[in-house]
């Protein structure tokens, strides 16, 4: 196939369908006898108290925020890593490396700031 993305599209399609097959098969032959006790929320035999969709520790959100920033930064680094090995680079490879190092150091400064402010502590 000429275009790799067409192949990938087909692959994703088949990759979604194949896990459905055993579930569908199981739905056909497995027994189904629901009753209220069976369908109750499993909490080791203890009755569920209150609503199940409750609020948990908000700090998970902070980690997701920090992660988001770093995730975006690393995306810039992939083209940089490729430029470092280019056949006829625009500038000396050492300069490209140093540009990347500055980029990373600014990023690490952000991490240090977060650390110093105590946001990485699981309080």
């Amino acid at each position: 196939m000429q275009n790799p993305w067409v192949y990938l599209g087909l692959f994703l399609l088949v990759g979604i369908i194949i896990p459905i097959v055993p579930i569908a098969f199981s739905a056909l032959i497995a027994p189904r006898k629901p009753n209220p006790i069976k369908q109750s929320t499993y909490e080791c035999g203890i009755e569920t108290v209150g609503e199940s969709w409750v609020q948990f520790k908000a700090q998970y959100y902070v980690f997701a925020l920090v992660f988001l920033i770093f995730d975006v930064e690393t995306v810039f680094l992939f083209p940089w890593a490729l430029a470092l090995n280019a056949q006829n680079p625009a500038v000396l490879p050492a300069f490209i490396a140093i540009e990347g190092v500055i980029f990373i150091l600014i990023l690490v400064a952000g991490l240090v700031y977060t650390w110093r402010k105590g946001l990485l502590e699981w309080a």
Partner: peptide, 26 residues
């Protein structure tokens, strides 16, 4: 595993509940 009864808890969000294992393996 195939012949075992498939239990969906009463309060579950059925569509998302069924989609999750499929996406996990996919």
């Amino acid at each position: 595993l195939i012949i075992k009864e498939d239990i969906t808890p009463a309060g579950a969000d059925k569509v998302v509940f069924n989609l999750a294992p499929i996406l996990s393996l996919a």
